[in-house]
């Protein structure tokens, strides 16, 4: 899938109830495995945990951002979970209600990685986060990301 979009509605989970950050990450990984974007769920989860252990990825504004570059990833992908009750990602201002799992192939060429760079830059913008918080369903979330994340 060389030109697969960063995200599709299949990769969005709404109204997730999760016990902790590992739980919500696992669910998102399962979505990526089901879509054929991750080949080994346990292997990729281990890579994400290792990254999370270096430095928590929670951000101000209710964002959790687990991510990893991994040999188990076939195409740069974004999976999104909306967790109304929140789940802790180590951010100073409280739990995350919006969780982004970024999966990058370990050998990805720079064109592929530029889309992830563009995504990271958009995530900083409050308007982008707000529109995702307010998106009513999986299709809307995927649409917003596809529309707004364009490599510079």
């Amino acid at each position: 899938m060389p030109d697969a979009p960063l995200i599709t509605p299949d990769l969005v989970a709404v109204d997730v109830v999760a016990a902790d950050r590992d739980d919500v990450t696992r669910r998102l990984v399962d979505l990526l495995v089901a879509a054929g974007r991750v080949t080994d769920a346990e292997g990729f989860l281990a890579d994400v945990r290792a990254r999370e252990a270096q430095m928590a990825t929670g951000m101000p504004g209710g964002i959790g951002l687990p991510h990893a570059r991994s040999e188990h990833v076939t195409v740069p992908s974004l999976a999104v979970a909306k967790v109304p009750a929140g789940v802790d990602f180590g951010a100073p201002d409280g739990p995350a209600t919006l969780v982004f799992l970024i999966a990058a192939p370990s050998g990805g060429d720079s064109d592929h990685l530029k889309i992830l760079a563009a995504l990271a830059r958009r995530l900083v913008h409050e308007s982008f986060r707000t529109s995702l918080h307010e998106a009513p369903d999986a299709g809307a979330v995927a649409d917003i990301v596809t529309r707004e994340v364009v490599p510079s």
Partner: peptide, 17 residues
């Protein structure tokens, strides 16, 4: 940043803004 795919670019965007 360690992974080079997220915080590197978030920091850049945040600083520019």
């Amino acid at each position: 940043c360690p992974t080079g795919i997220a915080h590197t670019y978030m920091a850049a965007e945040a600083l520019e803004q």
